[in-house]
């Protein structure tokens, strides 16, 4: 009989039957922490290899009375394998801070390195980067929110599956490792199951009350791989202020190198 002559197949089949309850046991044993970490690692894996990225962004700040002010910013990011990314933000408006540039080297562990360039004085100042809870140029985004986020900076916990605006999502919580210098006790993150894109984040302050909600909209896929949002809405529930980031361009693999991210390049960044 063919069944008996095809013995390697049979071995595999028998092994499968033998081990299948065990496999099930392993998957059941995945703790919420492990699942939370697995989700973020998969999201990270899907975003790897972007090389470098240049974006143009308009930031709209709204206060409680609906008064608006705008900032136009160009961001450049260089992917660093084995360490945190390097990034450079250059302001075009408001006009009085035109040409002001912020250079950040993020690190997987330890403090990030950060420099501010003041064009009127032609001066590069090193700035403290340990405390990340401060507002980024008066907006509802803190340095923590806009900086490159490394997996090692948080611990994770998967909570549940939930549908959000038509997307089947996983809901996980992020806890900052450096709790002392974070503005949050936890972040609750909704990621869609299809593409592992962040759809919504609830930020809880250090007293564990809801502080802000970030909503990501207008996702587009670039280079057949990388998903980026066209709009980020940050609402501060406690102050009533909000900030919208509108991204007009995303350019990947533009050929940036480390020489575009040093203190000299700050001075000619415009």
């Amino acid at each position: 009989m063919k069944f008996f002559t095809d013995w390697p197949g049979v071995v595999v089949l028998l092994l499968g039957i033998f081990f299948s309850p065990l496999c099930e046991k392993i998957s059941r044993a995945e703790t919420p922490e492990e699942k939370g970490l697995a989700i973020i690692m998969e999201a990270e894996r899907r975003d790897q290899g972007f090389g470098d990225l240049v974006t143009d962004m308009v930031m709209i700040l709204r206060n409680r009375n609906g008064q608006e002010s705008r900032r136009e910013v160009t961001n450049k990011v260089l992917e660093k394998k084995g360490d945190g990314d390097k990034s450079l933000s250059v302001f075009h408006t408001p006009r009085d801070i035109r040409g002001t540039a912020l250079l950040t080297f993020s690190h997987k562990s330890g403090d990030d390195e950060q420099w501010l360039y003041l064009p009127a004085l032609k001066r590069v100042k090193r700035i403290n980067s340990r405390n990340k809870s401060g507002s980024f140029v008066g907006s509802e985004f803190s340095y923590e929110d806009i900086s490159s986020q490394e997996i090692e900076e948080y611990t994770y916990k998967y909570l549940r599956d939930e549908e959000l605006d038509g997307h089947a999502c996983t809901v996980s919580e992020y806890y900052p490792v450096d709790a002392e210098n974070s503005g949050y006790s936890r972040q609750m993150v909704w990621r869609d199951k299809d593409e592992y894109r962040i759809q919504k984040v609830d930020f809880y302050d250090r007293k564990n009350s809801l502080l802000k909600t970030l909503t990501m909209k207008g996702y587009k896929q670039y280079e057949g791989k990388y998903w980026r949002a066209g709009e980020m809405h940050m609402m501060n529930h406690q102050s009533g202020k909000s900030t919208v980031l509108l991204y007009s361009t995303y350019r990947f693999h533009t050929g940036l190198t480390d020489n575009d991210f040093n203190k000299n390049s700050l001075k000619r960044a415009r």
Partner: peptide
């Protein structure tokens, strides 16, 4: 020389 050490510069 400029040096960052925690909340100190």
């Amino acid at each position: 020389v400029q040096m960052a050490a925690g909340d100190w510069l």
